[in-house]
């Protein structure tokens, strides 16, 4: 009996360790955060969070519209291709819709059989268009190159909440705060001063599904969309992960009983 107790306490020790690792390691791995006066982003509930998290298709489609009409004016998202828009686990546009969306852009292709570059309408295999041919051109036009948005939701601490907060966080600079011309003040940007002007205003993007197009709603939708561009396989990951977990728990159970049987002649 005493042995059993020891046995159990050791096991709980291991379990506690595993739990500590699951909770503690991410904390350890998270740096102190950008130095200075970073404000903790607004925390929202997102449908893609949690074990069963999935994307909200309507939010993704609205988010794409916001991305296309607002963000894409200055930002690229080079890793995303039009065909991704019809892949499972994304906005899931139909093939026809994607072909039409892609055909709206002009792609420089070539060289053709005469060695010349030529222009053609976009196809589903093409990347999202970049507003500038390269970073230097972007910097020359805007003062600084805007970051590529493909994986931006994973490239900032507390990514999605930060992006949302940034988009809704534009305010007037506090009394006495020297703001150079051309710069904006944002509550959530580390250091508060950034070159990106306030991108969203109420009613800016027409929503076809009748959702109120407030700044908050558009910020939420486009953030949802950018999470998808960063993690297009999230739904597959969650689904497979759940199956793997069930399997491993069952396997552990089997192994536990088999092991007890094996050891039963030793105690």
């Amino acid at each position: 009996m005493k042995n059993k107790m020891i046995d159990i306490s050791r096991k709980t020790g291991l379990l506690a360790l595993a739990a500590a690792a699951a909770i503690g390691l991410p904390l350890l791995a998270t740096p102190a955060g950008a130095a200075g006066d970073a404000v903790k982003p607004i925390q929202l509930d997102w449908s893609f969070e949690g074990v069963f998290g999935v994307y909200d298709r309507d939010a993704l489609r609205r988010g794409y519209k916001v991305y296309k009409e607002v963000c894409a004016v200055c930002h690229s998202a080079e890793l995303v291709r039009f065909r991704n828009l019809m892949e499972p686990g994304g906005p899931e546009f139909t093939e026809g819709q994607v072909k039409a969306l892609a055909a709206d852009i002009v792609v420089v292709d070539g060289p053709d059989d005469r060695g010349e570059m030529f222009e053609r309408p976009g196809e589903p295999k093409d990347r999202f268009p970049s507003p500038y041919p390269n970073d230097q051109a972007a910097a020359a036009a805007m003062g600084a190159a805007a970051p590529d948005l493909s994986v931006i939701a994973k490239a900032r601490p507390d990514g999605v909440n930060y992006l949302y907060s940034l988009l809704v966080g534009y305010t007037d600079a506090p009394e006495g705060f020297e703001l150079l011309p051309g710069l904006s003040y944002n509550t959530y940007f580390p250091g508060h001063v950034l070159a990106m002007p306030r991108p969203l205003s109420d009613g800016q993007v027409e929503y076809e599904d009748g959702t109120p197009n407030t700044v908050e709603q558009m910020a939420k939708d486009v953030t949802h969309f950018l999470m998808w561009t960063a993690e297009p396989k999230l739904e597959q990951r969650h689904r497979l992960g759940f199956q793997v977990m069930i399997y491993l728990v069952l396997l552990s159970g089997f192994l536990w009983f088999a092991m007890r049987k094996v050891w039963s002649d030793q105690h």
Binding site: L250, L251, F257, A258
Partner: peptide
């Protein structure tokens, strides 16, 4: 029962 448990465990692991 003992053998059944081993066979079941082994098969389950092999399928995984």
């Amino acid at each position: 029962r003992r053998d059944f448990l081993y066979v079941a465990t082994g098969s389950f692991a092999a399928v995984g």
